[in-house]
């Protein structure tokens, strides 16, 4: 039999039957390479078994607890960030056309006149309402009124949630600073 097979058997002796073990023993008697490899593995396994278990430094649990706290604050910040992004995105979508309509319809002179400004604002609001009507009228046909109300509540709800989250984060931050 070829040496290569015996070399393979050398490292899986638990899986060999007695006949295979006998063959391996006979081969080992005449094969220096197999003898060396077996001796090398015996040394390695012995040193591995002798190695003690490594232990962490003291107060591992306390360090873990502070890491957990840090993780929770990071998670809260992440949620607040997403809530802020979503609500800001929503506000921008609705706010940009409003701002554009204000600045494009007011002449420079009117800016200095209070009455003109008021009339301009009223006019702008009217235009804005008609703009919204223009957008939502076709949507009103497609979206049932109940769903429309639902969407409205969701938008306001998410804005409220954002405000609450920002308030909570502010409180956590000030509490943490106070403790430090």
């Amino acid at each position: 039999m070829r040496h290569r097979l015996f070399e393979e058997w050398l490292f899986s002796q638990d899986d060999l039957n007695s006949a295979q073990k006998d063959l391996l023993d006979k081969h080992k008697q005449n094969c220096q390479r197999c003898q060396s490899l077996e001796a090398a593995w015996n040394e390695v396994s012995l040193y591995m078994e002798e190695q003690d278990w490594m232990a962490p430094d003291e107060d591992f649990g306390q360090r873990w607890q502070s890491r957990l706290k840090q993780y929770k604050v990071m998670e809260q910040q992440k949620h607040a960030y997403w809530a802020f992004l979503l609500t800001s995105g929503g506000a921008l979508i609705f706010g940009i056309p409003f701002l554009i309509s204000i600045f494009t319809t007011s002449p420079l002179l009117e800016m200095w006149s209070f009455f003109y400004r008021v009339s301009s604002l009223v006019e702008t609001i009217q235009r804005w309402l008609s703009f919204l009507l223009m957008i939502f009228q076709p949507l009103g046909v497609l979206i049932p009124s109940a769903l429309g109300i639902g969407i409205g509540f969701t938008v306001w709800g998410s804005m409220l949630l954002w405000l609450i989250l920002m308030r909570r984060l502010h409180l956590i931050g000030s509490d943490k600073n106070g403790r430090e």
Partner: peptide, 11 residues
């Protein structure tokens, strides 16, 4: 099996 062999050879 492979790991034992590799470790023995390196040793």
């Amino acid at each position: 099996h492979r790991a034992r062999k590799e470790m023995a050879i390196r040793w």
